[in-house]
């Protein structure tokens, strides 16, 4: 096990952060610990690059898990050449945690998550759509968005 991973586990192990070593190290901090966790890995683990933010819509999760969305973050440490994944879950209308104060590129990545899943990030400086046009209604990557529902910008366009 790499030194940096060991340190993370040592520090957060008593808070029952679940983790997995599958394709890459994955951590499941509670939402309350999330900022502490990012604080730590950024300052001490030198995970200085936020590679990606995305989400998963489970719509109907199992009985014990009631939350609808799962946020997925990927971080890269240039110093240790290691990638980790961090996840936490959100209820249907719950707001996400913004990383814009830690990583500048989180701004657009979170806007993309908002655009596709409708997850609003609390404290984000510019919460608008980024890929779809403003007239677009609904959030296309949600599981309850109809598969082939199109919303043409040209009026009267029959697009089947």
């Amino acid at each position: 096990m790499e030194e940096v991973i060991k340190n993370i586990l040592e520090r957060f192990g008593n808070r029952e952060i679940k983790y997995k070593d599958k394709d890459m190290w994955t951590f499941y901090p509670d939402k309350e610990y999330f900022f502490d966790f990012v604080d730590y890995i950024k300052d001490y683990g030198e995970f200085d690059i936020l590679l990606d933010i995305t989400a998963v819509d489970y719509l109907e999760w199992t009985k014990e898990k009631k939350d609808r969305f799962e946020m997925v973050y990927h971080f890269l440490s240039l110093k240790y050449n290691i990638r980790i994944r961090v996840k936490y879950t959100l209820k249907k209308d719950e707001k996400g945690l913004t990383l814009t104060s830690y990583y500048k590129n989180a701004n657009w990545l979170e806007r993309e998550v908002y655009d596709m899943y409708g997850i609003v990030f609390e404290g984000h400086p510019d919460m608008r759509r980024i890929l779809m046009y403003d007239e677009f209604k609904g959030f296309p990557l949600r599981k309850d968005y109809p598969l082939k529902k199109r919303q043409p910008r040209i009026k009267g366009l029959n697009d089947d």
């Binding site: 779809m132 968005y145 082939k148 529902k149 199109r150 366009l157 697009d159």
Partner: peptide, 13 residues
């Protein structure tokens, strides 16, 4: 790309 974002052929417009 038979989905929400794509025009189904340029001949639509």
């Amino acid at each position: 790309y038979d989905n929400y974002s794509t025009l189904q052929g340029a001949d639509k417009i």
